[in-house]
Amino acid sequence: MKEKQVFHINGYIGLVLAIAFVLVGGWLVWAGATGDHFASIFLGALLIIIAAFGASSLTIVGPNEARVLTYVFGKYIGTIRDSGLFMTVPLTSKYSISLRVRNFNSAILKVNDLRGNPVEIAAVIVFKVVDTSMALFAVDDYEQFVEIQSESAVRHVASEYPYDTFDDDKKLTLRSNPTEVSDRLTEELQERLNVAGVEIVETRLTHLAYATEIASAMLQRQQSSAILSARKVIVEGAVSITEDTIARLEKDTGMQLSDDKKLQLINNMMVTIISERGTQPIVNTSDVK
């Protein structure tokens, strides 16, 4: 079922015509009754009935709203999307549906990420109705349908990514790549909600954290990873400084250090640079005579 436009005209013109039909019909009935003209009475009554049918088809459509019309026998005949007063097909049921942009905040869900770690996640879903017939007739309650499918999609997308990665493999993660994850969630949701005539405008993660039972352990792991990364940078810098020091001593002073002296110098400089606490200077007098 696809949305289609139903016949409708300006309601003010239709209202004026209905009033005119009633007045003319009433006059014809009065004239026919006084002059004993059955044809005038019949024509006047017919005009009044037509006016009543026309007046019953008057409907008001608000801004960013639509009216979905069905015959009293249940057949869908079309939708009015224009705002204002309109006269349309009589003997129809009219259902109002909002075309405004709305949002839905999902509850905080506990799911397992790609690595099986329990995480807490929640998202905000921004959506609007683009096909009124599908929204009303393809699903039972499209707003409830959006809520249920949104939570299902959040669970599914969260299971496709790890919460975080502790190596340099550049994989997408829930914590480091929120934009990519949101785009994937939008794609997943749109596929699920096409049947309801709903368009996803935007999705964003509003809550993301490790579950309480593993949060402390994962925090320690993150701290350890950060410390190891920092140590690696410090060691690389210390080695570079030591190499430059030995090279400049040999170049500027012409001093040729033995392997034992080089090892001693390297050891002292590495300890001095890498140590977290301030080092105490020690004077070596073992060779003094």
Score class of each variant (00 low, 15 high):
Asp36Met: 11
Asn103Val: 07
Glu191His: 09
Arg184Asp: 13
Leu23Trp: 08
Leu249Trp: 11
Thr165Phe: 11
Thr173Leu: 13
Leu205His: 03
Leu205Lys: 03
Gln280Thr: 15
Ser133Asn: 09
Arg81Phe: 14
Ala33Cys: 05
Val130Ile: 15
Gly254His: 08
Tyr12His: 13
Leu189Val: 10
Thr186Met: 14
Ser176Lys: 14
Val22Met: 11
Arg100Lys: 08
Ile60His: 12
Val89Gly: 01
Ser240Asn: 12
Tyr163Val: 01
Tyr210Val: 03
Leu58Cys: 04
Asp260Tyr: 13
Thr88Val: 07
Ser275Thr: 09
Ala215Asn: 00
Ser224His: 11
Leu114Cys: 00
Ala55Met: 14
Gly254Arg: 00
Ile97Asp: 02
Ser133Gln: 06
Asp169Lys: 04
Arg102Asp: 04
Ser225Gln: 13
Ile200Tyr: 03
Leu15Ser: 06
Val61Ser: 00
Ile125Gln: 02
Lys128Cys: 05
Ala238Thr: 06
Ala138Met: 13
Gly11Pro: 11
Pro90Ile: 03
Lys75His: 14
Thr285Trp: 00
Val119Thr: 03
Asp260Lys: 13
Ser275Arg: 12
Val157Asp: 07
Arg184Leu: 07
Arg184Glu: 15
Trp27Ile: 15
Tyr12Thr: 12
Thr79Met: 02
Thr212Gly: 13
His156Leu: 11
Gly237Phe: 10
Val288Ser: 05
Leu219Ser: 09
Lys171Thr: 13
Arg155Leu: 09
Ile50Lys: 06
Val195Lys: 11
Thr70Cys: 02
Phe104Glu: 10
Ala196Ser: 04
Val22Leu: 13
Ala123Ile: 08
Leu174Gly: 02
Gly84Ala: 00
Met255Asn: 10
Leu46His: 00
Thr70Lys: 10
Val119Met: 06
Ser93Tyr: 08
Arg184Gly: 08
Ser286Ile: 11
Arg221His: 06
Lys94Thr: 05
Ala20Leu: 12
Gln149Cys: 02
Arg115Asn: 07
Thr285Gln: 07
Val22His: 02
Gly84Tyr: 10
Thr245Ser: 08
Ile125Asp: 03
Leu174Glu: 08
Ile48Gly: 01
Val239Asn: 15
Thr79Val: 09
Thr59Arg: 05
Gly14His: 02
Ser216Trp: 10
Thr242Asp: 06
Gly84Pro: 02
Asn105Leu: 09
Ala122Met: 01
Asn194Leu: 14
Asp113Val: 04
Tyr142His: 05
Thr179Phe: 14
Glu120Asn: 05
Ser57Phe: 05
Ile13Phe: 12
Val89Leu: 11
Met255Gly: 08
Ala123Gln: 03
Gln280Asn: 13
Val271Glu: 15
